[in-house]
């Protein structure tokens, strides 16, 4: 493309570049605006007095930053926040660790039933969550893990998806690297930690982000699992502002804004790795 363009006249080149630039930004900015508008409405609504929430005028007549304080007064918001981060943190840690290890076994080791077991893993990606929900719930009841952190963390900590994602990524790492390390007498444990994992870092970050966000937002499982006030996570805890006794949409919006800020920061910081870390598979060469 660049070669062709240098041959064109100065004006044409300027116009083509300029035109493309304007077009791209135009389309993107329009789309971004449609994405952003409801959020602006949400942020503005979080500063409104309750009665104004549904008025068409998006701006509050009187700004009420006190809504944000009120959230903390009405529900143990900090506790919910802590629970959400805590549960999502543990799940992410366990998931990354066990998935990376399993992925190593699938991507780097040769054993008898490897491809069959991997196909089984792949097949379970298709299982709808509702199929396993009731048995898992029953299992949690039998294990006396209902209404506990463990009941939120453990069932979510082992997934086929993480193993799949990391296995695909590890396949792209040149074999010569770990073979060289093994030549030098390294054990599999050492190869895994010192050669493969550092190179899998983008994949791990991607998995960590997906897992963290997925669990931080998770609604249904905590809803059925958790009974006690002090164990509730944010998505379930915020339902308080939407109950039939006092629907407080402005506070709900304030809570949501506070809820998503850490996610946005996380995303902005990691979005580069996020894209590098996904290797779904290649076309047969």
């Amino acid at each position: 493309m660049t070669k062709q363009m240098t041959r064109q006249s100065g004006f044409g080149r300027w116009w083509r570049r300029r035109g493309r630039f304007v077009f791209s930004h135009g389309v993107l900015a329009f789309l971004a605006l449609t994405m952003l508008a409801p959020f602006l409405w949400m942020v503005l609504a979080s500063f409104k007095p309750l009665v104004e929430v549904e008025e068409l005028n998006p701006f509050p007549s009187k700004w009420q930053p006190v809504n944000y304080l009120q959230v903390f007064r009405e529900i143990p918001f900090a506790r919910y926040y802590f629970n959400s981060l805590f549960v999502a943190g543990w799940v992410t840690f366990l998931q990354c660790l066990t998935s990376a290890m399993a992925a190593y076994a699938f991507a780097r080791l040769r054993w008898k039933w490897r491809d069959h077991v991997f196909r089984l893993y792949l097949a379970t990606l298709m299982i709808p969550g509702v199929v396993t929900m009731i048995p898992n719930y029953t299992l949690m009841v039998k294990l006396h893990l209902l209404d506990s952190y463990q009941g939120l963390i453990i069932p979510a900590a082992f997934t086929a998806f993480g193993t799949f994602l990391l296995r695909q990524f590890m396949l792209t790492i040149p074999r010569s690297l770990d073979e060289a390390a093994q030549m030098d007498g390294a054990t599999h444990w050492q190869v895994f930690w010192d050669v493969i994992l550092p190179l899998t870092r983008p994949g791990l970050i991607t998995l960590a982000i997906f897992t963290f966000m997925g669990n931080y937002r998770s609604f249904f499982w905590p809803l059925v699992m958790i009974k006690s006030q002090h164990l509730r996570t944010l998505p379930v805890g915020m339902l308080y502002f939407d109950s039939i006794y006092g629907r407080q949409t402005n506070l709900l919006m304030a809570a949501t804004v506070m809820n998503i800020v850490p996610l946005i920061i996380l995303f902005v910081v990691t979005q580069k790795f996020l894209i590098k870390g996904i290797q779904l598979g290649a076309v047969k060469g």
Binding site: R79, F82, N83, F86, G89, W90, F93, C96, L97, Y149, W193, D194, L197, P198, R201, S228, Q229, H230
Partner: peptide, 26 residues
């Protein structure tokens, strides 16, 4: 930092948080 260190660090943080959560029970 080595990956081992990263994982160990995260693990220790989580253990610490677990302790905090345990202390915070009603």
């Amino acid at each position: 930092m080595s990956m081992k260190g990263v994982f160990l660090g995260v693990f220790l943080c989580l253990v610490l948080l677990t302790f905090v959560a345990w202390r915070l029970r009603p």
